Computed example of a mutant assay.
Amino acid sequence: MSVLAAVVALVGSLFFALGAALQQFEAVGAARPGLLALLRRPRWLIGGASILVGGGLHIVALGLGPLTVVQPMGVASLLFALPIAATLHGRRPSRRELAAAAVVAMGLVGLVLLVPESGGPTRLAPTGVLTLLGVSGVAAVLLWAGSRMASPAGRAALLATSSGVLYGATATLVRVLVDGAWDWWYLLALPVPALLALMMLQRAYAVGHFGVSFAALQIADPLTAVAFGALLLGEPLPTGVVPIAAAALTAAGTVALARTSPLEARH
């Protein structure tokens, strides 16, 4: 079953990578990367459907095998996405670009495998939900503000990190809805960070540095979810030197991607 779970998760990563590449291709070619404008683009919608399929397969994989098998397969989406995006833009990814992505992937695998498993159902009071939305919202705004003064690669990274923070908040809220005690108004709060994250991500994609933005998203999303899990749900954090080394790998790989990933544009 573990082998089957790994295969299903790997196929899910391929769908997720394809969807992200399609959406970036449309966002970078749009005069205005607004969500309403992108919703009129069939290829962007196909990308969204592909991401949903990938997410669904990831959930199926989690039902078939342990987290330690499924999560590393999910990280492979970064390695899939770069060649797909490069093909859409009519180029081949360089060896340095793929090597940098591999470094990010190794760091991410280390991080996701070191996160301690939580025990028991999750509980989050209404004040906790407000804290979740407030902290993630402030962080996202600060990252967006910083992106306005950054270089193109830095702008892509900061906007995607902003999106990842909001997606991490969304993931935390989903966990509470699925696993813990909740009120009906939690369902009303859920679309807020999710939609803002989607909008911010399209702005990151529109900058043109797909490798940088996708890597930053892949890093910020799980790390934010882990941070909120520790802050609001009382979950343990990984300890020791290895998590620091894994985080350093992801940071070094992302910086390398910023230097090797070309600025892509479509006219």
Rank of each mutant, 00 (worst) to 15 (best):
G34I: 08
R259E: 11
A37P: 10
A100S: 12
M149G: 08
G12Q: 04
A252P: 01
L223T: 05
R92C: 12
L22A: 04
A86P: 11
R92L: 15
H267Q: 12
V11H: 11
V226M: 12
V165L: 02
A169D: 00
L108C: 04
A247M: 05
P236L: 06
V226N: 07
G229I: 09
T224G: 02
L111D: 03
L233F: 06
T131A: 14
L62K: 09
M200K: 13
V176P: 00
M1N: 13
V176T: 04
G48N: 04
L133Q: 01
L190T: 00
Q24H: 13
V138D: 01
A49F: 05
S94R: 15
T68R: 13
S94E: 12
A248N: 01
G12M: 05
R148I: 02
D179P: 04
P238E: 04
R96Y: 14
A27H: 07
G90K: 15
A169H: 01
V135T: 04
V115D: 12
V242F: 14
T131D: 15
L190P: 00
G234R: 10
T131S: 13
A37G: 14
P243G: 00
P222L: 07
I219V: 14
A160W: 10
L64P: 05
L198Q: 15
G146E: 00
L177E: 01
P42S: 03
L231H: 05
L173R: 00
L14G: 15
T127M: 14
A100L: 10
H58D: 12
V207L: 05
G120H: 11
G128I: 02
L198T: 14
A30H: 09
P121R: 14
L132H: 01
A171N: 07
L190Y: 00
E97S: 11
A5G: 10
A171H: 03
A145M: 10
L98D: 11
H267K: 14
A139M: 08
A256F: 10
R43A: 11
L196P: 03
G253P: 03
V11P: 09
F15W: 07
V174M: 08
V69R: 10
A125R: 13
P243E: 01
G47L: 02
P83C: 08
L263Q: 14
T170G: 00
W144R: 12
L67V: 13
S2W: 14
F228C: 05
V28C: 12
A225Q: 10
L4E: 14
S13A: 14
V178P: 02
G134T: 04
S151P: 07
L198I: 11
T170M: 01
T127F: 13
Y205L: 09
A125K: 10
L98W: 09
V8S: 09
L79R: 08
R203M: 08
E235R: 15
P116T: 03
A81P: 06
L52A: 08
G168I: 01
S50T: 02
A61E: 07
Y167N: 05
G253W: 09
L130N: 02
L39P: 05
L263P: 05
A194V: 02
A101F: 07
F228N: 04
L173C: 00
A204G: 05
A49K: 01
P152I: 03
G154S: 03
T250P: 03
